[in-house]
Design a protein around this nucleic acid. Structure first.
Length: 359
DNA sequence: AACTCGGGGCG
DNA sequence: CGCCCAGAGTT
């Protein structure tokens, strides 16, 4: 269990509540108490700024004013209304959830965490937000703003990217809720994060809870929240061979599992530790196709970044000096002008593009 | 636990 | 332009 200063937490909770009541922005969904309208706003606000959401939310409530209207709408109209907001599965899930609410709850947005969580697209944050804001339940709603504010207030060093750390923040937030006031407290916490306790250059000079903020006291607010730096893509030296037979080139299909499964590529592979690029290429062609090749000249260098890898792929014009390629369903000689019929990974597609001169 | 989905703001 | 933002579902 995480340690935090209980007294400071209660003080900050009350301070945040008072600040919110005095300073809250006049947002359209804050004028309503309709759980459906609030649910829609919270779904739209996931990873999306308030100013962007407002016009979408207003149009949405006109087009689909009730859970029933959304449930019965054409999916194409639903997606059209979401167009430009991004993360379109949010829209699809919202409609699926509306249909489930009609079937299971007679069109009434559920007022328990378990029932909300059971709806598609409703995770821990959205369930907490709807329950507290629409139904005045004293439950926490922890989003990215809350991670940031609480990690600074209490100097929490847990990595917020780890799933288990959400529990830490939820229990602190739950403890801070002034009884019966979760709706305003939760929104206050998030509003502070959105307008004052922002990621870069936080405006500590007009923060209502500056005096109880441990990060401010130590001048380390910019260091929080702690987030594992996503490691940069691992550099990989790749090789690929251009093997010609008249106007034909040799390509092969990648395995059905793993990276780029089932796509076509020029034969080659990764350079291993202690190998030269040429040695790697000769080895891969020997191992995979039983032929000995001679890299003759560098045809192209292609860079491609995946989320976890960065390929520097050197493409060599090669001659076969020994052996014959066994062709099959997955290994083919293909005329240059037919290559476009095959699906290549982007990196190999870049090679195909540069082949224009061979036509 | 790692990856995917998108558009927008910021330096 | 690249980097950051950070909910929920999927694998």
């Amino acid at each position: 269990m995480i340690e935090f200063d209980r007294k400071a937490a209660r003080t900050a909770g009350l301070g945040l509540l008072a600040w919110y009541e005095a300073n809250k922005r006049d947002l359209p969904w804050r004028r309503l108490r309709d759980p459906y309208a609030i649910w829609v706003s919270e779904t739209m606000l996931q990873q999306t700024r308030v100013e962007t959401v407002i016009p979408y939310w207003e149009r949405w409530l006109t087009l689909f004013p009730t859970v029933e209207a959304l449930a019965q709408a054409l999916e194409s109209d639903v997606l059209k209304a979401w167009e430009g907001l991004g993360y379109y599965s949010r829209a699809r899930n919202l409609q699926k959830a509306a249909q489930a609410v009609c079937e299971r709850h007679a069109g009434v947005v559920p007022d328990t965490l378990d029932e909300m969580r059971a709806l598609p697209g409703v995770g821990p944050y959205t369930a907490g937000a709807v329950l507290s804001i629409a139904y005045d339940r004293d439950v926490p709603a922890v989003d990215g703003n809350v991670f940031r504010v609480l990690s600074r207030l209490f100097l929490i060093e847990e990595d917020i990217m780890k799933p288990k750390s959400r529990k830490t923040f939820e229990s602190i937030a739950a403890y801070m809720i002034p009884e019966g006031r979760a709706a305003s407290f939760n929104q206050g916490l998030m509003e502070l994060g959105a307008t004052v306790c922002i990621p870069k250059n936080p405006r500590c000079h007009n923060c209502p809870v500056q005096e109880t903020c441990m990060a401010f006291a130590e001048g380390v607010q910019e260091e929080f929240p702690v987030k594992e730096k996503k490691k940069p893509p691992r550099p990989v030296d790749m090789t690929a061979a251009l093997l010609r037979d008249g106007d034909q080139l040799l390509i092969r299909r990648r395995p059905d599992t793993g990276l780029l499964a089932g796509l076509w590529e020029f034969p080659g592979g990764e350079r291993a530790e202690g190998e030269t690029l040429e040695q790697a290429l000769v080895r891969h062609l020997q191992e995979a196709h039983g032929i000995t090749v001679q890299p003759e000249s560098l045809f192209a260098t292609v860079e491609h970044t995946f989320s976890h890898l960065h390929w520097t792929m050197r493409v060599y014009d090669c001659a076969i000096v020994e052996g014959t390629v066994r062709v099959s369903e997955d290994v083919r000689w293909v005329p240059v002008d037919k290559l476009e019929d095959y699906a290549f990974p982007v990196a190999h597609g870049k090679i195909v593009k540069q082949l224009g001169g061979l036509l």
